[in-house]
């Protein structure tokens, strides 16, 4: 059912080039809490996340994220793509977070203390406040992941789609981020759909695992 807490697929076919990621998949699954999207390398996990955001078109079928089509749902989704952001490395980290605040609205945003404080709050939440003023290019992989997570949290998203958020992190940092994600789901009610190969760090924290393999998606 297209319930406001569900991920709903009806006869969905999704391709990346000539490769079929989903082949006429019909599935309804709640995505409250933390949902892990698992699958082998190249199985199409990133493409599926992009389809949930409306960045990749379906070949066939209907996909609803929390009861809304991807093009509408994306406005309430925080997204963290796979791989480190290597654009604009010379700009301070906090500017990356501030730029994402109401970033889709036309016009300019005038400097305001509220915006800055809000960005600092998000950076503090992800443990990135201490290096917020350093250019992104001078940060380590793990530090950049924290900045990207703060960026995904701008504009109070109801859902987070995180593509390999634990990559490039050491074990301690992985546990810190997982603990943070757990807090976000429990205290703020944010739903998280994420891909990760670091399943050990997620032990006991994941509400369900969605498995993507051979053109099918199942719990």
């Amino acid at each position: 059912m297209a319930h406001p807490d569900n991920l709903f697929l009806d006869g969905v076919t999704l391709c990346a080039g000539h490769k079929t990621i989903l082949d006429h998949v019909t599935l309804t699954v709640p995505i409250t809490g933390m949902t892990l999207l698992a699958g082998r390398n190249g199985s199409g996990k990133s493409t599926f996340l992009k389809a949930c955001l409306g960045l990749v078109r379906l070949q066939n079928g209907v996909l609803l994220v929390k009861g809304q089509p991807p093009e509408t749902a994306c406005k309430q989704i925080g997204y963290m793509p796979q791989g480190l952001n290597d654009a604009a490395l010379m700009i301070p980290a906090i500017s990356h977070v501030m730029a994402a605040m109401n970033g889709a609205q036309w016009g300019v945003s005038l400097p305001s203390r509220n915006r800055r404080e809000n960005a600092e709050r998000l950076l503090a939440l992800t443990g990135a406040l201490s290096f917020a003023r350093r250019p992104l290019g001078l940060l380590s992989g793990g530090e950049r992941q924290r900045v990207c997570l703060a960026q995904a949290l701008t504009d109070n998203p109801k859902t987070l789609l995180l593509d390999e958020p634990l990559a490039a992190l050491d074990h301690e940092a992985q546990h810190q981020i997982v603990s943070l994600l757990d807090t976000l789901t429990r205290e703020l009610g944010i739903s998280i759909l994420m891909t990760s190969h670091e399943t050990e760090a997620l032990d006991g924290k994941v509400s369900r695992i969605l498995k993507l393999e051979n053109g099918s998606l199942h719990v």
Binding site: K75, Y79, N85, A87, A100, G103, W106
Partner: peptide
């Protein structure tokens, strides 16, 4: 530039994320 301001900055810093947010 004033009209494009916010989306231009967002898309210049993080094109993938900006696109996902509807820019």
């Amino acid at each position: 530039l004033v009209f494009l301001g916010r989306p231009l900055l967002f898309a210049s810093l993080m094109p993938d994320v900006a696109q996902a947010r509807g820019v």
